[in-house]
């Protein structure tokens, strides 16, 4: 069980969190303007890298805030956490 440093509450046990997949995937401005391919890309296609990955977490059994993290998917090590709305920090894995 990892410790996840919630940017609002500090480090907490992984079991308190809910995972939200890739971060920074914005809901399209105007979905009706998108082709089926473009819409499918938004609905179903996410990055799945082996290495640093900007992703969303929710401290669901704590402050219930969503935040973002950069985590190395090879080691599962959290490289950075940052609040929603903040840009992804530069990290080196």
């Amino acid at each position: 069980m990892q410790l996840i440093p919630c940017p609002w509450c500090g480090p907490r046990e992984e079991a308190e969190f809910r995972y939200g997949g890739q971060a920074h995937v914005a809901y399209p401005e105007d979905p009706s303007a998108l082709s089926d391919e473009e819409w499918a890309r938004y609905v179903f296609f996410r990055e799945n890298p082996s290495g640093p990955f900007a992703e969303r977490w929710s401290h669901s059994a704590g402050c219930r805030r969503w935040f973002n993290a950069v985590r190395d998917t090879r080691t599962h090590e959290l490289l950075a956490v940052y609040r929603a709305g903040e840009p992804a920090p530069e990290v080196t894995a």
Partner: peptide, 13 residues
């Protein structure tokens, strides 16, 4: 509730 909060916080803050 999770669904609502997710949209509110991550898309429409």
């Amino acid at each position: 509730l999770d669904w609502m909060e997710e949209w509110l916080q991550t898309e429409w803050p």
